[in-house]
């Protein structure tokens, strides 16, 4: 009991962080509660988002006052979110492995510094600037080059067949998201590769392995769990990304994507773009339903991050045990 004051003050201040998380969950949840009651589980599985007749007298359904004909289903946005994130990860994971291997094993000195800086810079570019570049450069490129090329090369698969569209859509969103996720995965993987125990590598060389075989058969398997954790972190980023996706995804309402070029909307983009129109609902149920999307998004990202952090924590503990 010599100097308890500093510790007490610091503990109280540090408590702000867990309390903030709790407050976010509580306030969002309680604000969305009437919508959760009204929408039920169908919220997640219905295709149609319809504000209802805002000029007729509201009706009472399930104890909640809502506009006549109002229906809130977010399956379209869940599909858009999952599909664009999946495309992003499918592209970003192999690219990140290539980059991390190149940075740790192929180059050294100034070139490694320079390329690491490029990867860091990629992480520093704000989301809305990616959106601007996507709008100005990537959308015409997808509409006139990448899309037609994919259709002629892979058109036998239904996913790549059909109209290429305007360039706004799933593919463009996935490409932009991939760029944003690569630095997260690549930098984590680079750090892990740098920490692969040297005796492990020397052992493989002593068995006559080539340099690339050491990378492929020894180093990459050694960092597998780091790769999984980093990919999940990247997935979390992609699921919640808002501005860049909003600017290039085209904004689909009430229909599911039929091919990889279709316009889509993600949950995050929808929340941001629809508040103005939801505010025209005099019963407020539309805004509360948007809050319910925020709750769903919050819970998904919480879950994804929990899994990633637990994995990282476990690998750290295991390596600590392994090294004595």
């Amino acid at each position: 009991m010599k100097f308890p004051r500093v510790q007490t003050v610091l503990t109280v201040i540090a408590a702000v962080i867990p309390l903030a998380l709790l407050a976010i969950l509580l306030f969002l949840g309680s604000y969305a509660w009437p919508a959760i009651r009204f929408n039920g589980l169908g919220f997640l599985f219905k295709l149609t988002w319809n504000l209802g007749n805002l000029y007729a007298n509201p009706v009472t359904v399930a104890g909640q006052v809502v506009p006549r004909g109002a229906q809130y289903g977010i399956l379209v946005f869940i599909a858009g979110t999952l599909l664009s994130s999946a495309i992003a990860l499918l592209l970003a994971v192999p690219l990140s492995i290539g980059i991390a291997v190149f940075l740790t094993e192929a180059v050294g000195g100034t070139l490694r510094e320079l390329l690491s800086f490029v990867v860091e810079l990629l992480a520093g570019v704000p989301s809305v600037v990616y959106g601007l570049w996507g709008y100005a450069v990537l959308i015409p490129l997808v509409a006139h080059q990448i899309g037609p090329f994919l259709r002629s090369a892979l058109g036998f698969l239904p996913v790549f067949a059909g109209s290429v569209g305007s360039g706004y859509g799933l593919l463009t969103a996935g490409l932009v998201l991939a760029l944003m996720v690569v630095p997260i995965i690549a930098s984590t993987l680079r750090d892990a590769l740098l920490h692969v125990p040297i005796p492990l590598k020397e052992g493989a060389y002593a068995l006559g392995a080539t340099h690339h075989e050491v990378v492929r058969e020894v180093m990459l398997p050694a960092v597998r769990s780091n790769l999984v954790a980093a990919s999940i972190l990247g997935l979390g980023r992609a699921l919640g990304e808002t501005m860049a996706v909003l600017m290039v995804s085209g904004g689909a309402l009430n229909y599911l994507p039929h091919n990889i070029y279709s316009p889509v909307t993600t949950m995050a983009a929808f929340i941001l773009s629809q508040l103005d129109s939801a505010l025209t609902d005099p019963t407020g149920m539309a805004v509360r339903s948007l809050a319910e999307i925020a709750v769903v998004l919050f819970l998904i990202s919480l879950l994804v991050n929990l899994v990633a952090r637990l994995l990282i924590w476990q690998t750290e503990r295991r390596s600590r045990v392994a090294h004595g």
Binding site: I24, G236, G240, E241, T242, L297, V304, N305
Partner: peptide, 8 residues
């Protein structure tokens, strides 16, 4: 918390 989407 670093993983919570900023829009939320």
């Amino acid at each position: 918390m670093t993983g919570i989407p900023s829009v939320v």
